[in-house]
Simulated assay, not measured.
Amino acid sequence: MSKKKLTALGATRRDLLKGTGALLLGLTAGKLLLPESSAQAKAITEKWPWPYEKLDPVETAELAYRGWYKLFCGGSVVCSIFSQLRKKVGGPYNLIPIEAFIFAEGGVAGWGTICGSLLGANVVTNFILGPRIAGTHLGALMGSEIMEWYCEAAMPVYVPKNPKVDPKKIPHTVSDSPLCHISVGKWMKKANKSLKSPERRDRCARVTASVAYHLVVLLNKWKDGKYEPDAEFPSGEYGIPAQHNCEACHGDDVPEAPES
């Protein structure tokens, strides 16, 4: 395989190695502040909810938009929020190697599964609000809510202040699915643009910014004590992990899940 062969989202192997090198440099420069012991780390990170200070949705979206061109979808959602909370709060946010979440690129390593921006959003909600095993369902429910919103929204929603591509060249599509393959595929068909085109790349950067914006709106409501989950777990309704539009893939032949 050529060293210059492009990844699924257009970055070269050299670009990815540079990103890894930057992460290692950040570690040695002290950007990742390690505790003195594993017990201390556990005491800091496994006590939920994590401290949270309200963020500006627009500023966060701008960070996510620009960050996409380095960390792509999942990594830039996590970075847009955690980088700000490192400054505002510190503590557990200093223990997260943010750039590691670049793996969510292209629906996880280019496989077109869950959109990386949604994976990043669920990472954020479960880190801040806490996982279900910690005695709260809020992290999972907020993650589920933002996934449903993503499926129904005409993406991209957010328009950056200084876009790299003319907004008139970025059409809107409704994915009806949290899958990268379907979301990107529907957009590419409507826009008649290739995966490596500047328009497709900027579209995904704007989708990522849209998710980061919406996520901060929900987190701010939670901080104010006004968040009421507007979501459910699809598996409870269908008896199998699923999305709400089964017919999109199965047509009229949707199989019934066994009851026992």
Rank of each mutant, 00 (worst) to 15 (best):
I170C: 02
K88N: 05
F103D: 13
N162L: 13
V123G: 00
P167F: 05
G90R: 09
G90P: 04
K169D: 08
T113R: 08
M147D: 09
A134Q: 12
I133S: 15
P92N: 10
L85R: 00
L141N: 09
V124T: 11
K87I: 15
N126E: 15
W149T: 13
K88C: 03
T113E: 06
G139K: 06
P160T: 04
E99Q: 11
A109R: 05
V159H: 03
E105Y: 13
I128R: 03
P156H: 15
P167C: 06
I128V: 14
P97D: 10
V157E: 09
L129N: 05
F127R: 01
N94E: 08
V123D: 02
M142R: 01
S117P: 01
R86P: 07
L118M: 06
M147H: 12
F127W: 04
V108D: 01
Y158S: 06
T113Q: 02
C115A: 00
Y150E: 04
G139V: 08
K88A: 04
V124G: 10
C115R: 00
F127E: 08
W111G: 11
F103I: 09
K87W: 06
A140M: 11
P171N: 01
G116K: 02
R86I: 12
F103Q: 13
I102P: 01
V89Q: 01
I133M: 12
T136D: 07
C115T: 01
A104M: 07
L119N: 00
P167Y: 12
V108I: 14
I114T: 08
I146C: 04
E148D: 11
G120L: 02
G91F: 15
E152Y: 05
K87T: 15
A109D: 09
P92D: 08
G90A: 05
E148C: 04
G110P: 03
Q84C: 12
G106M: 08
G106V: 06
K168W: 11
F103P: 11
P92F: 00
I102F: 15
K88M: 03
K88S: 06
L95T: 14
F127C: 13
